[in-house]
Amino acid sequence: MSASTARFTDAPGDTRTARRLARQPGTRPRPARPRVQHKRAILIFVLPFGALFALFYLVPIGYAIYESLLVIKREGTFGAATEVFGGLSQYILVFQNGPFWQSVGRVLAFGAVQVPIMLGLALLFALLLDSPLVRGKKFFRLAFFVPYAVPGVIAAIMWGYLYSPNLSPFSAVTQNINFLSADLVLWAIANVVTWVYVGYNMLIIYSALLAIPTELYEAARLDGAGQLRIAWSVKIPLIMPAIVLTAIFSIIGTLQLLAEPQVFRSFSSAVTSTFTPNLTVYTTSSIPNVNLAAAFSVVLALATFVLSFTFLKFTQRKEARS
């Protein structure tokens, strides 16, 4: 964590601000331990968010870990159930749970295919919008962004009908290819996610492109480099950090997949109650087996964290080398 946050925290201007403050005439010379000024104001500013963050972020994380360490003990078959400390026994159950790991494998396969396609398209569109090749940029930017205004649940319902063999406007296709079959439904869902998020990722990459000073590729242009060459050798390396970030958030999103598959359960029997890890959590918690569900949650959150962190480190090292 520390390394990644160090990257983030590097707020330019902060140190400058401090220096400027120190230089300011009339400021008393600093004692060895600077007294905090405006304590009351700082409290008023920080406390509302701090309290809510603690209550609804930190406490739940702690509570999930606590619950995941408990097991239910019953006195006889019908006796009262009590929760007792069970060590890591829920985690052993998690690791022995076949359907859960199948669902993890499923979303990993999903991510390995869908995330590159989605970000590839987003990058392509952003570069085209940034190039002199395309007219009507305003229109395309808006048109591509519209799906982002469609909530995942609603998008899944819409596409559910578009895939349906009888109701689809493309029934000539859908009657021959069953997108809702066990083989294809994962990729049908991947298409829904891609449809919603390409425009959003495009905008993030596009705004990074707009921030590149034109002078940086005027020189390349004078040397006779074409658009493709400029995009590949100048623009893409410069916006790599933006691409990495969209990739990380896409990875997080993929592992958390829930709404779309949950909606698709009413269109396709191939989507089981343990289709994705989050569906497994939901199903397990409504059995109810909250302790096991909590353990699933903890493992999933950890896996997400490790994966996105590893990806960040990996790309950073690659960048440093090149």
Partner: peptide
Amino acid sequence: IFNVVLGGVLVPATALALPLFLI
């Protein structure tokens, strides 16, 4: 505080739903 909050950016909201329900 800032680093803890930034860690929060990486915590998926869905991972919190179940523990929030329990609480």
